[in-house]
Design a protein around this nucleic acid. Structure first.
Lengths: 205, 205
DNA sequence: TTAGCTATGTATCTTTTGATACCGTTTGTA
DNA sequence: TACAAACGGTATCAAAAGATACATAGCTAA
């Protein structure tokens, strides 16, 4: 429960902390669980304590990654959908075992008017999601695919040594390209001793 | 001043309307005026009444368009910067003569806690900026440049007949490509009788 | 062990886009 | 009017990326 308290530190008002503990419920999800589904109304808002939710949109055969919800973060798409009583336009699926604090979306309204730190939290969330997306747009617009792959691997690896588990196909989906292109570039990286490849994983050198 | 009242209708609480009129100031800008500059602290928040502000980021020689602030809208980047007391990371420049309601950014905090309709306005703003950006990302990732040009023209033209005033170079900047590419594709459109070209303008057929 | 699935390697071809260079035309203004 | 700057047309070349096809390797379950 250490992580729970770490998460709570954003919410400086004792009243808010109490409300969160009172109305919130800690739920454990398995890898691959669906948290939100496109077209569904959002009744509950999650704040992730441990793990990660992958949030993405899907049109026809195309898929576009919006963001990952990680520890201490919430899902801005869910928040907005809930707030405006809209159906969700994205999917949210856990990519690893995940614990989240879940509470009724109906509380958002009240909290906004009562707790400044809640507003700060939400606005910071929106802002950083927006910045992330601008970053993606920029990289997509101006960087070549090899740079984008390397950037992605570094970010995913979090600058720590160790294997990063994803297939060429996964990578292609994340970056919006095709498997063949990924294989081609990764092979080149391998020749240049920038990475080591395994079945279903990559290691940065 | 008709437009001013149209803008105000978002703010349903009489108290908020009164505060806006009291603390706000209507300012007229010329085309090309700089509203916010990268690296500058944001002290005032604009709500556009008439006209449009182009908000974009610039790194080295690259430029990336974020959004236009049009009538009844505000600049979410400014808002976030002001709220967190950060310097702006974007530029905002009017692309036509523009009237805006300007008020001290320091009021944001209070209004959030007092007026639900202000919160609603802000969140809707953030949400739609985010959605716009996702759209751009999607088109950039999956559409070919000819489709993107046509989409852009249609949006800019607002499905009305009439000329759309921009040079090939402008278009190239907006779409993150080069002038030659634009000229090439527009020529093709002209051959296919999809558009008519003029110096500094295009007309959809 | 074998069949079947998933993951990866790679060759070939085509398309799209970008880079560069040079041209003529229009427009604004000194 | 003359000159510079902005605008647009076009040719040539190169690079990047996608499409397709097929081969091989590892993993797993019957």
């Amino acid at each position: 429960m250490n992580e729970l308290f770490r998460t709570l530190h954003f919410f400086t008002e004792p009243g808010l902390q109490q409300e969160i503990l009172e109305h919130g419920k800690v739920v454990s999800f398995n890898k691959g669980d669906v948290i939100v589904r496109d077209g569904q109304y959002v009744k509950f808002l999650p704040i992730v304590i441990k793990g990660a939710i992958r949030v993405f949109q899907q049109n026809e055969d195309r898929e576009i990654l919006l963001y990952y919800v990680r520890a201490e973060e919430t899902c801005t798409m869910s928040l907005a959908a809930a707030y405006f009583d809209n159906k969700s336009t994205s999917h949210g699926i856990t990519i690893e075992p995940t614990d989240a604090l879940i509470f009724p979306a109906s509380l958002i309204n009240e909290w906004q008017l009562k707790y400044p730190s809640w507003n700060k939290y939400i606005l910071r969330m929106f802002r950083s999601r927006y910045d992330e997306l601008v970053g993606s747009l920029q990289r997509l617009a101006f960087d070549h695919i090899d740079v984008r792959i390397m950037e992605y691997l570094k970010r995913k690896g979090g600058n720590r040594p160790g294997k990063i588990y994803l297939s060429h196909q996964n990578l292609a989906d994340e970056l919006g390209t095709t498997r063949v292109v990924i294989s081609r570039i990764l092979k080149q990286f391998e020749k240049d001793k920038k990475i080591k490849q395994f079945r279903g994983a990559v290691e940065l050198l």
